[in-house]
């Protein structure tokens, strides 16, 4: 390797995550754990050039590069939260496959639960209304009458009612 190339390598600089999210707040990891965590975080990030695919699932070069970046940041001790924040600061919330549970996107999480609760309350009150209406209808609806034919036979033989 010539001196010129060595000098060049020394001068090259790519944007550092520290510029966005500060120093690593976790512990550096290696080996199989590093690969597992890289895949897990890659599943939380959207590949920007694919149709709704996670970085971990896409063979696109952009996704491969992003996954490489996740791996490098994990190896340096960055936490999952810091890594997701780093990508969000570059790409916007669009890059997160699960919308954040705050702000306007928080509605995505709140509204279905709210709709379910309102539905449950409506169903509860409907049932209670039905229950209140039922006791009045019961005596007329189920008169315990003896079969008239059987009653006539009983009269004829002079037997007692059971």
């Amino acid at each position: 390797m010539t001196l010129a190339v060595l000098l060049l390598l020394f001068q090259l600089k790519v944007p550092d995550a520290a510029q966005f999210v500060g120093a690593p707040q976790g512990t550096p990891i290696t080996g199989a754990v590093l690969e597992t965590r890289t895949n897990e975080i890659g599943h939380l990030l959207r590949c920007p050039v694919c149709q709704g695919m996670a970085v971990s699932d896409s063979p696109a070069e952009m996704a491969v590069n992003m996954k490489g970046q996740v791996r490098e940041l994990l190896a340096r001790g960055y936490t999952e939260e810091q890594i997701l924040r780093y990508f969000e600061l570059s790409y916007g919330e669009f890059v997160l496959l699960s919308p954040k549970k705050e702000g306007v996107t928080g509605m995505v999480w709140v509204l279905p639960v709210l709709a379910l609760l309102i539905g449950a309350v409506v169903v509860f009150f409907k049932f209670r209304k039905l229950e209140q209406a039922l006791p009045a209808a019961t005596p007329a609806a189920a008169p315990a009458l003896e079969d008239p034919y059987l009653a006539r036979v009983r009269d004829m033989v002079g037997g007692d009612k059971p």
Binding site: V14, P15, P48, V49, E61, M62, N65, V95
Partner: peptide, 15 residues
């Protein structure tokens, strides 16, 4: 030349 695409990622380049 942005060899590993790290600069593009930092700038949020999608395509």
């Amino acid at each position: 030349v942005d060899d590993a695409g790290k600069t593009a990622i930092a700038y949020g380049v999608g395509g």
